[in-house]
C-alpha cells in the first residue's frame, strides 16, 4: 500500500467556480489554505461585513481595517470555526463585529444613538443586494419589531454601540441586572422569532 500511495505530481491547478459550495464547505477549504475559497467567502460576506463595521465605526478607513483583520482571522483560524458551534456566517460576522468593537473602543468612537437615528456614511455605496440578503433583513427587522422597546434598545445599543454592559446601564439609567436580563431575553426571543419566521416563510407558497 505504501507504494500505491506515493504521491504523483498533481495536474496543474486552474481557477474554479466555487459558487455552488455551502459557506461551511468553503470554510473547510479555507482551512486547507485555499485562497480562492477565501475570495468566494469575501464576495458573499464582504458587503454585510463592511456595512456592519461602518455602522459601528462610522469611519471608512477604520471599517476597512476591521473587515481586513476579520477576514485574515478567518484565514488564520478557519480550522477552529466549528469548535465555536456556529454556522459559517455567524462565525464570520462575529469576527467582524469583534474587530469593529475593539477598534471603536480603542479609537473611543463609541456612541449611544439608537439605530433609527444613525447617520449613514455619505460616500458609501449600497451594494446591489442579493435576494436572500434582502429576505434576511426583512425577517430580522420584522422580528425586532416584536420585541419590547426595552429589549430592542438593549440589543441595538449593545450590538452597535460598542459599549460595555456597565456603560450601557449608566446610559440607560437602569440597574446592571436589568440590562443583562433585557439582553438575554431579547436575544432569546429574537432567536425564537427567527426560527418561527423561517418556518412560516417556508410553508407559505
Amino acid at each position: 500500500m505504501s507504494l500505491l500511495l506515493t504521491a504523483a505530481p498533481p495536474p496543474a491547478k486552474a481557477p474554479r467556480n466555487l459558487a455552488h459550495l455551502s459557506d461551511e464547505s468553503l470554510l473547510s477549504l479555507v482551512a486547507s489554505s485555499d485562497d480562492n475559497a477565501l475570495a468566494e467567502l469575501y464576495d458573499r460576506f464582504g458587503g454585510i461585513a463592511y456595512g456592519l463595521a461602518l455602522r459601528i465605526l462610522r469611519d471608512e478607513s477604520l471599517a476597512q481595517d476591521a473587515v481586513q483583520e476579520a477576514f485574515l482571522g478567518v484565514w488564520r483560524t478557519a480550522d477552529r470555526f466549528l469548535a465555536e458551534r456556529a454556522s459559517a456566517s455567524t462565525w464570520i460576522l462575529t469576527l467582524v463585529h469583534r474587530r469593529a468593537v475593539d477598534l471603536v473602543r480603542r479609537e473611543d468612537r463609541r456612541r449611544g444613538d439608537p439605530l433609527e437615528s444613525a447617520p449613514e456614511p455619505a460616500a458609501a455605496e449600497t451594494v446591489e443586494e442579493q435576494a436572500t440578503t434582502r429576505f434576511q433583513r426583512r425577517v430580522v427587522q420584522e422580528a425586532l419589531r416584536q420585541l419590547t422597546p426595552e429589549q430592542r434598545e438593549a440589543l441595538e445599543l449593545g450590538y452597535y454601540g460598542g459599549l460595555s454592559q456597565s456603560e450601557l446601564a449608566e446610559r440607560l439609567g437602569q440597574p446592571l441586572g436589568t440590562v443583562k436580563s433585557r439582553m438575554f431575553s431579547g436575544l432569546g426571543r429574537l432567536r425564537e422569532l427567527l426560527g418561527q419566521a423561517g418556518l412560516e416563510e417556508s410553508l407559505s407558497p
Binding site: 463592511y50 476597512q64 463585529h97 449600497t126 430580522v140
Partner: peptide
Amino acid sequence: LREAAAALAYTAPATQPPPELK
C-alpha cells in the same frame, strides 16, 4: 445567542467596500 446577535448585522445596509480591500 450568537446566531441571534449575528442576525442583527443584517439590519445595517450592506455596503460595497472599495475593490482594493479584497
